[in-house]
Simulated scan of single mutants.
Amino acid sequence: MIEAVQPGGDVSRPGLPELTLYQDIIGGSHVTGDLGGGRFRTGSEKGGVLVAAPNFANTVIIDREHHIRALSFPVDQWQEVIDEASDGRFSLECPQLHIGQFRQTTIQSALRNLWALSDEEGAPSRLLARAAGCEILAELCRLTGGTFAPTRGGLAPWAERRCLELMHARLSEDLSLDELAAEARLSPFHFARMFKHSLGVPPRVYLTRLRVQKACELLEKTNLSVTEIALEVGYSSNQVLARVFLKSLHMNPTDYRRAVRDPTRSFVES
């Protein structure tokens, strides 16, 4: 994940073994080049996305200063996931993806949420990054006419139980989607869809809920500092925990502790 403001001009790059999405945050520029699907010229719209093919030395010229977000998918880490999800019918090097800018609301929403959550929680967790990648690549597959097998149900009871036990046991760790999927004996892509079917929310959202619940318990029953509690539930600092608390409970951890220990005492939210 990279975000940058760049001057206009030649922004070509050598061939790299990764698929890269470029989202224009401002719009209003003109782009010419070849990203792996043939020569194109297009006006760039705010929120629009360009996709650069892996292993292709692209040529891109942008006529003015631009603000972009870039997200890369290393081929060696993702092609196996996509092959399993699509029965081998989708390639990260599909030329249809690389012939100009497109606007796809699901991808735009996934990128927006990924950056927002990264701002809230610091560097994106492996669980967040992998789940967002599965969602984005699934939509790219659909754009090329590919399909995935529909979800026929949720997790088996034993798989759901084991995954939740793993989440509770490793609450302070950067648990990955791949580790949870392995516990359920599923591919990461299918696991993410089946988990949401069973629990009603994606794995990352469920893990955040568990962390907030545990933090509340520690604030109520211990004298650990907010920083110690943040580390105990998997966040890098008290500032990160405060942002998560504010979003979930509309108050900061210190005010929560005061409220539950002395409900008659008034407090002002920070």
Rank of each mutant, 00 (worst) to 15 (best):
A132N: 15
L186W: 04
G146N: 14
D119M: 03
L180E: 05
E84D: 02
G88N: 13
D83I: 05
S72L: 08
D178H: 09
H197Y: 08
C216M: 14
S118A: 12
R209T: 05
L137D: 10
L155W: 11
T105C: 07
F90E: 03
F191C: 01
V201S: 10
C94Q: 09
A123C: 03
L114G: 07
E139R: 06
R162Q: 11
T106M: 09
T144P: 00
P188K: 09
Q77L: 00
L117K: 15
E183F: 01
L114T: 05
C163S: 06
A116W: 08
M194W: 07
R89H: 12
G154P: 06
E135I: 01
A149C: 06
E135F: 11
C216K: 14
R152P: 08
H197V: 07
S125F: 07
V205A: 06
S198Q: 01
V212R: 14
T147G: 08
K214E: 13
L92Q: 09
S172I: 09
G154F: 07
T106H: 14
T151I: 12
T144D: 08
E160A: 01
E93W: 10
Q79W: 00
L71Y: 05
E139P: 11
A149L: 07
L155N: 08
N113Q: 15
L127I: 01
S125W: 02
P157D: 01
G146I: 02
A181G: 00
P203C: 12
A70T: 13
E173V: 05
L171K: 12
G122Q: 15
R209L: 04
E183K: 07
L143I: 09
T151W: 05
C94V: 00
A138L: 14
L210A: 05
S198G: 03
T106N: 13
E80V: 01
G153S: 10
P150Y: 00
S72N: 13
C134F: 00
C216Q: 15
F90W: 05
F90V: 11
L71V: 13
A159D: 12
A184S: 03
L171S: 04
D83P: 15
G153W: 09
L175E: 08
E165T: 06
I82F: 10
E173P: 11
L207D: 11
Q101T: 12
T147R: 13
A149K: 13
T106R: 07
S125T: 09
F90R: 14
R209Q: 09
R126I: 00
G122A: 04
L97A: 03
L143D: 01
G88S: 06
H190S: 15
G145H: 01
G154N: 06
P157T: 07
K214T: 05
S198D: 07
F191Q: 00
R211V: 03
E160C: 02
T151M: 09
I136N: 08
P157S: 04
R204M: 03
R130Y: 10
R161D: 11
M167L: 08
F148K: 01
C216S: 14
R193I: 00
A132Q: 14
R130W: 11
A123S: 02
A182L: 02
S125L: 11
A159R: 13
G88A: 12
L137V: 01
E183I: 02
I99G: 04
G153E: 15
P157N: 03
